[in-house]
Design a protein around this nucleic acid. Structure first.
Length: 315
DNA sequence: AAGGGCCTCAACCGCTATAGA
DNA sequence: CTCTATAGCGGTTGAGGCCCT
């Protein structure tokens, strides 16, 4: 396929935007809305390529963009989300209202990365730089590998959910009680978020999936949590003890955090691993999960309890 | 004051994903 | 199904500002 030339045409301007160009672009978009980027420059009287216009708007001119210093809370969120998602700047940006992926990426590369290095933390792995087995002890891994927890949750989330559930779980991970509170308030009949039970968490997920509520606007196209990490790893390896302690200082989240840890420490097992294991058989449970839909009656507590007793073998 | 090095961040590049003809 | 246009993403670049000598 022949690539469409971009910014190669004669007379197309490159480089920094002038206030006049910004004004033209803003005026045009306020009048006609976003889209049609290819033909926009000519219509708006700009000697720029459409891509350049789109980027200028998305990263700088959009009215909802929040400018200025990142707050400590935002920094914390970026670090934690980076530990979970890696360099998925667009996905991270969806959790930081008003911040663009470009801005977050720049901030990470120029500030946060360095700061982590100074603290002796590998900014890529989010682990201590000198932790590579100087003590001879391996990092803690569960019996069946490290990717399963994320897959298990992805499976549950994708079954029960729309993208909002990922926001909910992300909110839990980063200690954002707002998301959780929103679910509780909006869904009405779900358990209190502070109630300490696995079913509470799954009920919230199920409630969120019912389509009646929207936790927050979500334009992420992320397929879900990365298979490259498990949440149990997220807690015990990606985050330092201090960071975990910090999360637990939010009293509202303590119960849910504990429960999430419990769920995720089921063994870090791939579902296939669990299914194929002679020690435990959850095939029926997963089949049940696959066939379940939101209109069916389901005693989640009983279901989860049953799952607990089986997969718990691997803890 | 000059200039060299470093840092920041807006903008660009190259690529993939997706929609629609 | 194929092709093309468009949108979106992550990595990289480079202009301009700042700091230090």
């Amino acid at each position: 396929m022949v690539r469409t030339p971009c910014c190669k045409e004669e007379g197309i301007k490159k480089g920094a935007w002038t206030p006049e160009e910004d004004q033209k672009l803003t005026a045009y978009l306020q009048l006609h809305g976003e889209g049609g980027w290819r033909t926009l420059p000519e219509k708006a009287g700009l000697k720029r390529c459409g891509k350049s216009c789109r980027l200028r708007w998305a990263n700088y001119l959009r009215p909802d963009i929040k400018r200025g210093e990142f707050t400590p809370e935002e920094e914390d969120t970026i670090i934690k989300l980076h530990a979970l998602k890696g360099n998925k700047w667009a996905a991270i940006a969806t959790c930081l209202a008003g911040r663009t992926d470009n801005e977050i990426k720049n901030y990470w590369n120029t500030n946060l990365k360095k700061r982590l290095k100074q603290k002796g933390i590998d900014p890529t792995a989010h682990k201590p730089i000198n932790s590579t087995d100087q003590t001879g002890s391996e990092p803690k891994h569960h019996k069946l590998g490290s990717s399963g927890s994320a897959r298990l949750l992805n499976r549950v989330a994708s079954k029960y959910s729309v993208d909002s559930n990922r926001d909910l779980l992300t909110g839990i991970i980063i200690g954002n009680s707002t998301n959780i509170a929103d679910v509780s308030q909006s869904s009405g009949d779900v358990d209190s978020p502070t109630k300490n039970s696995t079913s509470t968490l799954l009920n919230q997920m199920a409630a969120a999936s019912s389509g009646f509520i929207s936790i927050q606007n979500n334009t992420s196209t992320s397929p879900g949590f990365s298979d490259n990490c498990s949440f149990s790893d997220g807690f015990t390896e990606f985050f330092s003890n201090d960071e975990i302690s910090g999360m637990y200082t939010n009293v509202d989240n303590v119960g849910l955090m504990e429960e999430l840890k419990d769920i995720l420490s089921y063994g870090g097992a791939d579902l296939g691993d669990i299914k194929d294991s002679p020690e435990v058989n959850v095939t029926d449970d997963m089949d049940f999960l696959d066939s379940w839909n939101k209109d069916d009656d389901l005693d989640l507590e009983k279901f989860v309890s049953s799952l607990d007793s089986k997969i718990g073998v691997f803890v």
